[in-house]
Amino acid sequence: MRREIPLFLTIFFGCMMVIGFFVPHPIVNEARSRVEEWTIILAAAAVVLGVANVARIHMHKISRRDRDFQYSFPLLFALFLMILLGIVPKDWITSMGFPAGGTDEGSPFDWLYNNAYVPMQGTMFALLAFYIASAAFRAFRIRTVEAALLAITAVLVMIGRVPVGGSISNWFNGLIHLDLWTLPEIQQWIMDIPNLAAKRAILIGAALGAIATSLKIILGIERSAIGGD
């Protein structure tokens, strides 16, 4: 029971997806469709499980008075507030004078999303601009031919991909009265030929790996994720 049923479910769900692709019969399609609907619900439940785990970890942190446990209070407060605002019946929220309830536009849930979630997530990603600048100065050292190729390509792409690249090329071509390749053209060639070749090889290699792993899972050879060896 502990091993056989998970293994059976893995093989059954996996095979349904593959058979559904090769056999477009209505009965097979209907069965595959059902299996897919169930998977959607399970995937949603897995997200809730993950969040429940985060909540549990932070509750433990508070109860054990771990280091920085104080920060778990705003985390749990925000977590439960968002859940509450999002799932209570919409008319409860509107009866309090808000224009909308649930997760709809104009609801308190939406207000928190727009004015807290959006700016904080956007800024966290924006921080990386500063660190990439710092790394460009401190860590980007051209020590080998390979590093030189990487650096030259990076510079050409960075300058050729933005409008200033075209402006520089036009100015330079005008200066020497020649019609040389412009920086945007060089950049485009890099992207379309050598970059594309390497990226395509990576795609092919990764596809082979993913196909092998998926086959091992569906055939029951790879069982570590469901508690097997």
Binding site: V48, A78, M124
Partner: peptide
């Protein structure tokens, strides 16, 4: 921490 809480609550809702 506030962000993590908001994001997690948002996903569940």
């Amino acid at each position: 921490h506030l962000f993590v809480g908001l994001a997690a609550g948002y996903y569940v809702a």
